[in-house]
Simulated assay, not measured.
Amino acid sequence: MDFQPRAEFLTKSLHRADAWVDHFRRQEFPVLASSAEALEQLRANEDDVDAHLIGQTFANDPLMTLKVLIHASNLNRERRTADAETLTSAVVLMGITPFFNLLGPQPTLEDWLAGDSEALDGVDAVLGRAERASRFALGFAAHRMDPDADILHQAALLHDFAELLLWCHAPALAKTIRIHQKFDPGLRSKVAQQQVLGVDLMSLQKDLIRAWHLPAVFGHLLDERDPQDPQDRCVYLATRAARHSMLGWDNAGLPDDLTDIGALLNLGPIPTLRLLHDLAGDPLARGPDTTM
């Protein structure tokens, strides 16, 4: 049986950036089923829960992370002296009991898109890329002994959150973008998005960061342009390498990734490649001559 879209799913483009921002701001969105289940388990043991445990529990769910940051960013905003830049610090700002009060039982992504296997595959691809990019960013930051490693990990995890929201609220349009790129492999994602949506997702993402009053740090950490600041570059190269290596290690873009990551980390090509394999959970077989 063909998938019948929910009445609330968008099937036609809103065309203007401000209309997309307004729509996303007014909509609920789901989290991973594993996160929804873990939230209820933590709720049942609230007296034994702290912010660090909550941060660890949801560290790999970009949708849950985004939801918590949105709640925290709009809490006592006029009186705050600092932003919560990580999920853990957001929970500290909110307090444990208010956290559970603000986040009741959550809708799950799996139920939200139930019956639409193509949409589930699409969102799974974005989630897999996000998780991989966050591992790369954390590994690069650890190698550089960056004190903001947690923020860089989270920025890489959230790098494509607008695409996740599109799959949740307008799966038909997300599929159309994929079809355009499938039939025109040279078509850039930004151009395909503008053709279908009237706006590219990275620009929309920046508008949402401002509209939700998310920490300003994410505005530049999520920039797609080739940055020179080491922290921005850490996230940029992590997401680029994740995108190029998702389907294998023979992508034509990977040699440039290795060169740029090696320059950032002061590593030679082979140690850089080995590091990427290790961070991806796919260790590179060691040959007799692999030191540089």
Rank of each mutant, 00 (worst) to 15 (best):
D2I: 09
F3H: 15
R6I: 04
F9V: 00
L10F: 09
L14S: 09
Q27F: 13
P30G: 08
V31Q: 06
V31K: 05
A36Q: 06
E37Q: 03
A38P: 02
Q41K: 12
Q41T: 08
Q41A: 00
R43L: 01
N45S: 09
A51F: 11
H52V: 13
I54T: 08
G55T: 11
A59C: 02
D61F: 05
L63W: 09
L63S: 05
K67H: 11
L69K: 10
L69A: 04
R79D: 00
A82I: 14
T88K: 13
S89N: 02
V92M: 04
L102W: 14
G115R: 07
S117N: 08
S117M: 02
E118L: 08
L120A: 01
G122E: 00
D124Q: 04
A125G: 07
V126A: 09
V126T: 14
L127R: 03
G128T: 09
R129D: 11
A133F: 13
A133E: 08
R135I: 05
F136T: 03
L138N: 09
A141C: 01
L152N: 02
L157A: 08
L157H: 08
D160M: 00
L164D: 06
L166I: 10
C168L: 12
A174Y: 09
R178I: 07
Q181D: 01
Q181V: 02
G186K: 06
R188D: 14
Q194E: 15
L197K: 13
G198K: 11
Q205A: 02
K206R: 06
R210D: 14
L214A: 06
P215E: 07
G219Y: 13
L222I: 03
R225T: 11
D226A: 04
D226I: 03
D229E: 14
P230L: 01
D232C: 11
C234G: 01
V235L: 04
Y236Q: 07
Y236H: 15
Y236K: 06
A238L: 07
R243W: 08
S245N: 10
L247F: 15
D250M: 06
A252T: 09
D256F: 08
L258I: 15
T259G: 13
D260W: 14
A263E: 12
N266F: 07
G268T: 08
L273C: 08
L275Y: 07
L275P: 00
D282H: 10
R286H: 07
P288A: 10
